[in-house]
Design a protein around this nucleic acid. Structure first.
Lengths: 355, 355
DNA sequence: ACTCAACATGAAAACGTTTACGTTGCCGCC
DNA sequence: GGCGGCAACGTAAACGTTTTCATGTTGAGT
């Protein structure tokens, strides 16, 4: 079998930068004088190959700058080593932190990350979902329009999936979301603890899950810790403007509330603007607090007391959960529903901390 | 050839949710009574197939919910229809906008997006770069440590690549960056136009490309429009703290500067804090301006005059450029270097606008 | 010395596509 | 009526892996 056939596509001649097409496993096999099977074994598990042949193969591989062809491996292995993240139109810190958390956890598992973001409507999300078919081993899904029907329609039922912050609780899928409820309770307890009695809540957009849970936490905390305090709601939509309007409404209330808890930071900031314009001092006359701990929160005057959620952790834990699901496909994990903790950050706007 | 062999893995029985493994092209071929070649033809170009057979094939495909196996296609086609984005550790709005721009442009071209983010050092970036080998048709690369040597070392020379905001100008690669220079000039011209004479510049971190270009723009504008105005530099590092310290230095200067131009918004905000503490009114006594137009810029008091760069456009244009390169591999496009425009946003901190 | 297990290795099948190349059947033209 | 050409379609060869199976080869146990 000694033939004179040179490696067909590899360097011609000797020194250095010869233009070479990417080497395949066959080239490595020839270079190391073994069969392709041995190369595969040596480079993967390393079992079933002598230490010295393995060594020789490894050397040949690096010499040829061999990189296994991803597609070929996927084809036979039926694993892509890639997970997909389907995300809605997200902005700012939230998005970047989420991706960071996912990416880090994925990299730790040796997985690649295929992202598809900015889906405004269900149709766009469905298209993106289909396009990911077969390119990913699992799916991280955060979508406001991901109701049960949508999922059953568009999701391959055998694809491991973890839902993040979605409406439907963990009946058929794994899910993970931020502890809105607990966070809101903490905030109300804080406000009560520093002596406030009449706490008004500025709601988020109707139908929004996060907003709803935060409202729930507010109600729960009141009934369990201060059953005599009134439940006062104002409409909002997470926008700064709506917070401003809510602030104006607060001004007209008699007796005047002594604290405002907005369902997110932007509304809290808008609310503070309205109060300031009316000459009301925060926190002396009215305490104000928000939710999210956006970067801006510590820069407004006074700095905003708020609830911090570790978004990167949301992404990271979701990735962990997905990884488990991928590694143990038989194990039933549907129905698991975890929450990532929220943390109270006390700043000047509730008067309990100097800065 | 009429046999009774049922499609082996497909539904057993009839109605609805029968558990089925994913259908392959063979299943479709059998279902439509044609060869696999015809299926491929019908589903791709559609040439070389009768309209009616094509129709029949298409029906069979949808009936079986056929989705071509991505890996198999990649293997034979040698195209992944995926582009990779290698990004450093980015935060907040910048990151999310960049991804949004890239993602949208990629989707418009039918390309998937593989991201790898959060690379602090060159080693991590190199690993990530290698891992993307063969999984992508092109690369979008933004990396502070992407010098020429690094690229030549780790980048397959035949992989279309577009550099974003990197140090080395377009000698060997396509590059794209924000017009720091032009933006800074615009800002200085604005400050001069409203009557300021002594404009101090707060520098960014040494070695930072963006910071350097902004400083250059500042110098250029001064020499060309106000050669008599002094060039005054203060050290900074893009952090709010450093802006605060710079602000304190400004306070001690005699004659006192009448305007501050910080290399980014956070430093401008820090600077304003220092001035406020000293009882100096912005913009009446000293005007302050920044660069970036971070979301916070419009919420500080007074709202910050700054330079807005359309980050999404940076990503989108980079993707466009990369797409061109992928579609026309022979065409030499190395050396192209585009800049995305910057825009002056005048707000209260330079006193030229009410709010 | 003979058997049997254990082990290193190679040959070849499989994964699901695309595509170059044949093969047919049909039509028009001489 | 034979012949060339064209269009539709099928056959089979690739693509680069992993993995099963078969085949030595060795070493230990009797």
């Amino acid at each position: 079998m000694k033939t004179f056939t040179l490696p067909p596509l590899l360097g011609f001649g000797g020194s250095g930068q010869a233009r070479m097409a990417t080497a395949t496993i066959k080239d490595v096999a020839r270079e190391a004088q073994v069969s392709v099977a041995s190369v595969s074994r040596a480079l993967n598990g390393g079992r079933g190959v002598t230490a010295e042949t393995s060594q020789r193969i490894r050397e040949a591989a690096t010499r040829l700058r061999y990189m296994p062809h991803a597609a070929a491996r996927m084809l036979i292995t039926r694993r892509t080593n890639t997970i997909g993240a389907l995300l809605p139109d997200l902005y700012g810190e939230f998005f970047s932190e989420l991706i960071r958390g996912i990416d880090l956890a994925a990299r730790a598992r040796g997985l690649h990350l295929l992202v598809s973001s900015s889906h405004d409507d269900a149709a766009a999300a469905a298209v993106a979902l289909r396009a990911m078919q077969g390119r990913v081993d699992g799916l991280l899904l955060m979508s406001p329009h991901a109701d049960a029907a949508f999922l059953r329609q568009n999701l391959p039922h055998d694809l491991p999936t973890v839902l993040m912050n979605t409406r439907l609780a963990g009946d058929d899928y794994c899910a993970l979301s931020v502890d809105n409820d607990g966070g809101a309770r903490m905030m109300v307890e804080h406000l009560l603890a520093i002596g406030h009695q009449r706490i008004v809540f500025i709601q988020g957009p109707p139908g929004n899950r996060d907003a709803g849970e935060r409202e729930l936490g507010y109600r729960e905390a009141l009934v369990s810790h201060a059953p005599d305090s009134p439940v006062i709601m104002l409409r909002g939509d997470f926008g700064e403007e709506s917070g401003y309007r809510a602030g104006q409404e607060v001004l007209g209330m008699r007796p005047r509330p002594d604290a405002v808890f907005a369902a997110n930071d932007m509304m809290a900031i808008g609310c503070m603007a309205a109060l300031r314009e009316a000459g009301i001092c925060v926190p002396e006359e009215i305490a104000v607090s928000g939710f999210d701990d956006v970067p801006m929160a510590r820069y407004v005057t006074p700095p905003l007391t708020t609830i911090q959620v570790h978004i990167a952790e949301l992404g990271g834990q979701a990735m962990e959960l997905l990884g488990e699901q991928i590694d143990h496909p038989d194990q039933v994990m549907t129905g698991i529903h975890r929450r990532v903790a929220a943390k109270l950050v006390v700043r000047g706007s509730t008067g309990a901390a100097p800065g």
